[in-house]
């Protein structure tokens, strides 16, 4: 459901007929997709299906062999990488990390940390943060530029179930507060299905795309995710059949765990 009325048609990124070869392997084959202002688009797909490569095309780290990636003029992108291995020889506090690549006043740093749900840790070394705090600091850094588009590559890798649920809630909140569009890769299908406006199912090529409902019922999607999706699908229907409050969230997690 688009949040920003009127502004929702502004196209931020258009990926058109993109093919990428990485080390002799065809990572992306004739992929097209787009992101509009304010929407949440999730890319799902099995390992090695080119999800990260597609994101890296959008940020400009990978140049497509064929095809084009068009970005709106002056588009500001906030990027949260899948992981960030900081060498132990590099002393870096969370606050200093947020001042990369542009120096920021400490108030702006504190604000971004608060917005990402990681208050009062600006002076802590990055190496001393918990997994959840670390991901939030990555998110805070991505928010520093007041981005039009937030790109997240499996942002909850290494977080436990509650931690990951918290993190997605945080992203949803950030989207509400800033109006930034979100493009993310995720493995957590139940979250994807409940929180996305559109889903792109990728396996080298675009298998199917559209609203979560359409994608979930597409035979291509079922073929890819097989039995593993049954629980998530059931949960997804459950979530959408019933309007739920915060208190219901526990039931969701519970039923999801049972479904595994």
């Amino acid at each position: 459901m688009p949040v920003l009325s009127g502004a929702s048609n502004v196209r931020l990124v258009t990926v058109k007929d993109v093919s990428v070869k990485l080390g002799g392997h065809q990572a992306l084959n004739n992929v097209s997709m787009s992101i509009d202002k304010g929407e949440i688009v999730t890319i799902v797909g099995p390992n090695g299906s080119g999800k990260s490569t597609l994101l890296r095309c959008v940020i400009g780290a990978v140049k497509p062999e064929i095809g084009t990636v068009l970005k709106a003029a002056n588009l500001k992108i906030g990027y949260v990488p899948q992981s960030l291995a900081i060498d132990p020889t590099l002393p870096l506090t969370a606050g200093r990390f947020l001042s990369l690549p542009h120096r920021r006043p400490s108030k702006a740093v504190a604000d971004a940390l608060r917005q990402a749900g990681a208050e009062d840790i600006a002076d802590r070394p990055m190496s001393g943060l918990s997994g959840g705090q670390f991901q939030r600091v990555l998110l805070a850094r991505a928010l520093m530029d007041k981005p039009d588009l937030l790109i997240l590559d499996e942002p909850t890798t290494g977080l436990d179930q509650p931690g990951s649920a918290d993190f997605y809630t945080q992203i949803e909140q950030v989207r509400r507060e800033t109006g930034a569009a979100v493009l993310m890769v995720s493995h957590e299908l139940h979250v994807v299905m409940s929180a996305s406006d559109r889903v792109v199912c990728l396996n080298g090529h675009v298998c199917c795309h559209g609203s979560p409902e359409i994608v979930a019922s597409a035979p291509e999607y079922r073929a890819l995710f097989g039995t593993g999706t049954h629980g998530a699908l059931a949960l997804y229907r459950h979530e959408h059949d019933h309007h739920h409050h915060d208190g219901d969230a526990c039931d969701h997690d519970h039923s999801h765990l049972e479904s595994h």
């Binding site: 890296r56 400009g60 690549p101």
Partner: peptide
Amino acid sequence: QGLLTSTLNPDLAYASG
């Protein structure tokens, strides 16, 4: 600043132009 960002992660650098 650019050197430090690229040292941390090349993709972070790309995303920041």
